[in-house]
Design a protein around this nucleic acid. Sequence first.
DNA 1: AACGAAGTCAACCGCTAATTT
DNA 2: GAAATTAGCGGTTGACTTCGT
Length: 194
Amino acid sequence: MAPKNDGSAKRVMNKGAWTAEEDSKLSQYIEIHGAKRWKTIAAKSGLNRCGKSCRLRWLNYLRPNIKRGNISDEEEDLILRLHKLLGNRWSLIAGRLPGRTDNEIKNYWNSHLSKKINQKQKTQEVSTVQETTPQLKSQGMAPMKEEGAKIVGSSEPTFDVNEFFDFSAEGSSGLEWVNKFLELDEDQWFTDKR
DNA sequence: AACGAAGTCAACCGCTAATTT
DNA sequence: GAAATTAGCGGTTGACTTCGT
């Protein structure tokens, strides 16, 4: 679908890093008018930015109660466990970590955790293949290299969570089912960590 | 001190889903 | 119900910083 030509299409928007002045303008506008209708916010706040850019800036940096940096061990554990459960559903994972944004968690995963997991996975794969291959061969099956890799550190969960859980019935911050699942998973988790 | 490689993270892009007209 | 608009998501990029040589 083609966007309406409102006369602003040819206007060159600012890109790149936000300045303190831009942050201030955006914060002030949202404080008065609320964080709705980003296109309008972008147009009326005096920022030469697109609505998308304003929304991202607000959600990731300017909104209240944002935590920055220093992800604790507890938070890291939770991210690992939620990723194991949900895959790359960063916004859902972020919903369980107050003050954290999906972008931050995604970055943290890509720069820190994926490496940790790859290392762990490599060591596990060696032992798993050694243990399972003779048995699988005897059953006429190939070693499950791909499937095995999905257990930890893949971008997809090992099952379709939508088939198991009705996301439409859950608020983003009230995912009771996650806690239940994690409680169920707790024994296994601490067994893994020992 | 200088340089390149690797790591980090803010921001953009493309797409889909949800909502409004 | 269809079209248009808006919101939101995840993947990717690129500028900047840190580290190693």
